[in-house]
């Protein structure tokens, strides 16, 4: 790495920092209960819940910090927080 003049930085480069290691609990997805409302994806502070083409979601465990907002806000209890086994 060479210092850029004035410290100008390229966009989206925090992806180098995998925050998944912060996690104590991880979301467990009960796809059968999911109504594909997209709320979990919208709310995730770490942009780690991704809606697929079929509107079901997948979790990006490279970055998910395990906050549990997705589980807490899911209207159908389709996400459950379980202890992360490391």
């Amino acid at each position: 790495m060479k210092i850029t003049i004035g410290g100008v930085v390229e966009p989206g480069t925090t992806r180098a920092n995998k925050t998944g290691g912060w996690r104590n609990f991880k979301p467990l997805y009960h796809k059968d209960k999911c109504i594909k409302c997209g709320l979990c994806s919208m709310l995730c502070p770490d942009s780690s819940v991704h809606e697929q083409e079929d509107k079901y979601v997948i979790f990006d465990f490279d970055f998910c910090k395990g906050c549990g907002i997705c589980a807490n806000e899911c209207p159908k209890d389709a996400i459950e927080m379980v202890l992360e086994e490391k």
């Binding site: 925090t14 992806r15 995998k18 925050t19 996690r23 502070p45 770490d46 910090k65």
Partner: peptide, 21 residues
Amino acid sequence: SRLAPGHRGCAGCCDAMAANF
């Protein structure tokens, strides 16, 4: 253009959510 993941906000960070919206 949401925030890229990997930022150092706390788990459950309100600022990250606000920025995303």
